[in-house]
Amino acid sequence: MTPLRHHASSEPLIKVENLCKIYSLENGGNGTVNSQVLFDVSLTINRGEFVAIMGHSGSGKSTLMNILGCLDTPTSGSYWLNGRDIAKLSDDELARVRNRNIGFVFQGFNLLKRMTALDNVAAPLLYAGVSRSESRKRALERLQQTGLGKFAAYQPNQLSGGQQQRVAISRALVNNPQLILADEPTGNLDTQTSGEIMTIFQQLNREQGITIVLVTHEDDIAACTRRLVRVKDGRVVHDDEVPA
């Protein structure tokens, strides 16, 4: 399997076409009820972009993020990541894509409990087959990058929300992904901490050219990005540059 990052950079990083997602729910013995969440979503994101996806709750933005993150599969439509058709990948290959090409940052941090910050950051490398000493070394570098080098031995419940989110960002970065997907990364944080986290994202995007896609419903967070996509009732209703 060729690592995706070696593909020609002229290609868009993300290309989705006519994406639909329908959830089938069991309706207490009366058969199933279908509920469509995404309607013919098409979207292209190039390398190095910093995109905010905005929408109310229930607009389908989280579902879109999950599909982009290879955590969920679309009902119909196609998704190319780095020119690769994601629909054709097996479960193991999807796991590999999540491991090597995508870094996740969640609203609720989603750190592994009762593991040190260092072990949390090193966890993706465990599944990448990197040796223990090498992964600890790389994890420490990433923690230092987000300014948490001193907290390597702390467990998540000993850290503040902002610190936990920095650990999560370090973890997202540890395997050098081209894409970071952040689902309301500042949703649980106060304004000042949110600003600090957004500064980290901006630096990563500007200095390292990492593509970042971020879901939010806050205008001032979206204002930190360079492109705004609005989703409403499962459709893309707005897609434009963010005025500087």
């Binding site: 479960d91 193991d92 796991a95 590999r96 491991n99 996740f104 592994l112 966890a123 599944y127």
Partner: peptide, 15 residues
């Protein structure tokens, strides 16, 4: 949830 996190960061089913 832990299993979900592990899958998100790249654990395959066999792991």
């Amino acid at each position: 949830r832990e299993i979900g996190i592990r899958m998100a960061i790249g654990a395959n089913r066999r792991a």
